[in-house]
Design a protein around this nucleic acid. Sequence first.
DNA 1: TTGATAGGCAAGTCGTTACTTGCCTATGCT
DNA 2: AGCATAGGCAAGTAACGACTTGCCTATCAA
Lengths: 97, 97
Amino acid sequence: MAEDVFKALADPTRRKILDELTERNGQTLFEICTRLTTKHGLGSSRQAISQHLAVLESAGLVVSRRQGRYKFHDLDTQPLERIVTRWLKPDAPEGTP
Amino acid sequence: MAEDVFKALADPTRRKILDELTERNGQTLFEICTRLTTKHGLGSSRQAISQHLAVLESAGLVVSRRQGRYKFHDLDTQPLERIVTRWLKPDAPEGTP
DNA sequence: TTGATAGGCAAGTCGTTACTTGCCTATGCT
DNA sequence: AGCATAGGCAAGTAACGACTTGCCTATCAA
């Protein structure tokens, strides 16, 4: 639902995670943790990031695939494209009769 | 800031207000209140809507103009267009070389 | 098999936020 | 002037959300 997408986007840490996955897709939880602390400078614990990933996943913004003991996370921008057209309708992007 | 925009969009009542202003721009506080209760069926008090409008206004999504004892509220979608391109950049909409 | 790595689950804490309640200001009409 | 309408301010309450803490499971390498 759109509700979940908006609530998922409300948190700055979750938006940083989306930024990180935009740069490099298919990261594991620990990869995201380390790159968030080093590059973006925010010290969030593993559990915190894990819960954020769960929120993003239930919103459909992130899909995960398990492989052995690793769990890779991929970005999915489809939910984003849907929610924005809500108030931008009178724009008539291109193929509108 | 983008922070304010995302937080403003996180609340379902505020999104309904944006829906309402999309349908009819330039409404007063009382107009929005009555149309939200009648059409959308959600019973929010005047003060609640007033505070929501303040949040939307500080996020730049709504601009207000005072005229006598009335205060009209207009939708501004510019902040929306900015925040979405954040993760949709590789899309290259149409006029991109 | 043992240890190390990658991740999950659940309860509890603390801050934020949406909403209420009560009162106040300002404009317009008669 | 007097009253009604349109809106604002501020403190208090209740619930939600982010984060922590502690322990548990599963996979791989030695």
